[in-house]
Nucleic acid binder design. Structure first.
Length: 286
DNA sequence: AGTGTATCCTGCAGGC
DNA sequence: TGCCTGCAGGATACAC
């Protein structure tokens, strides 16, 4: 899926075409991508005029002029495709929700695997919804000290912590793995064992990777496309993710693929040494 | 508290 | 060509 940089690219792309346009009707083609009753979803959104589309974490937030919202979590394969005619937009192979505009155009939510979800939010629900997510890693307020504090509160592997949307919003597997490589931290390192120096490197690495990926329009490995149909360019800048067996750009040793927490991670055995085993648990045989 | 597993789905690549 | 397995930018619920 779309992680933060892809959601950001999508939101920016939609802001080129959506503001001011009016939804005439909504057709839910796949009930399971809509949170709650499809009929009520369609009724709630019909007649609304688009304001500015925003992003929160990995979510694209379609905001209407009356401050009601549709939060789009794109899952693994969700796409938002604007079209100049009422039918599903160009390149939409698995349309799931079709928003038709009063000017004849449209916006298609397309999702091959249908892991994505569209949630309608009354204006009064926004704050509560947003509060479930952790801080935005690219916000000015996300300082090294803030990250260090989050790290210190968890013993879980740092990659797992970075993926936890309640702790930090918007980081997915690609950028978590990349940030760990840049920081020289093994993704399995217990978060609370990361010291000030490594923590500061992780903070810089994470923000740098995310910023660069935003500037590159995101990472296209398979399905991801910006609203204009363009692919991202950050896949060419990946240093660890997906590079199993290829030489590390720093030390030339082969990148290894490991699996934990149910997901692949990619590590350089030279630059990202295995964490030392933790202290023996109570009751362990010495 | 943290972790492994299964679940929701489809498509694609690779092995035989 | 077909059939199988494993894998995928995510999130959640469950049992240990």
């Amino acid at each position: 899926m779309p992680e933060l940089p892809e959601a950001e690219t999508i939101a920016r792309g939609l802001n080129m075409v959506l503001p001011g346009r009016v939804v005439r009707s909504v057709t839910v083609l796949r009930d399971d991508v809509v949170d709650g009753s499809p009929r009520r979803f369609a009724e709630a959104v019909s007649g609304k005029r688009f304001g500015t589309t925003e992003r929160r974490g990995k979510n694209v937030v379609l905001t209407f002029e009356d401050a009601t919202r549709v939060v789009v979590n794109l899952g693994m394969t969700g796409r938002l495709v604007p079209g100049s005619d009422p039918g599903p937009g160009p390149g939409s192979t698995h349309p799931a929700v079709l928003f038709q505009f009063s000017d004849g155009g449209s916006l298609t939510y397309d999702d091959v695997r249908r892991f994505g979800r569209l949630t309608h939010l009354p204006a009064s629900d926004w704050k509560r919804w947003s509060r479930r997510l952790g801080p935005e890693p690219l916000a000015r307020s996300f300082t090294g000290a803030r990250l260090q504090e989050i790290l210190s509160r968890s013993r879980s592997p740092v990659r797992s912590l970075l993926l936890d949307q309640r702790k930090i919003a918007g980081v997915g597997n690609i950028y978590a793995v990349e940030a760990c490589w840049f920081a020289g931290i093994h993704p399995r390192t217990a978060a609370n064992s990361i010291g000030a120096g490594s923590g500061a490197r992780l903070h810089r690495s994470l923000r740098r990777v995310l910023r660069r990926a935003v500037n590159a329009g995101g990472t296209t490995l398979r399905n991801y496309r910006a609203p204009d149909g363009n692919e991202g360019r950050f896949q060419r800048a990946l240093h660890a993710y997906g590079r199993e067996g290829q030489p590390c750009f720093r030390c030339r040793r082969g990148i290894e693929r490991i699996v934990f927490g149910g997901r692949s991670a990619f590590v350089c055995p030279g630059c990202q040494p295995e964490p030392a085993p933790g202290p023996a648990a109570r009751g362990d045989v010495p």
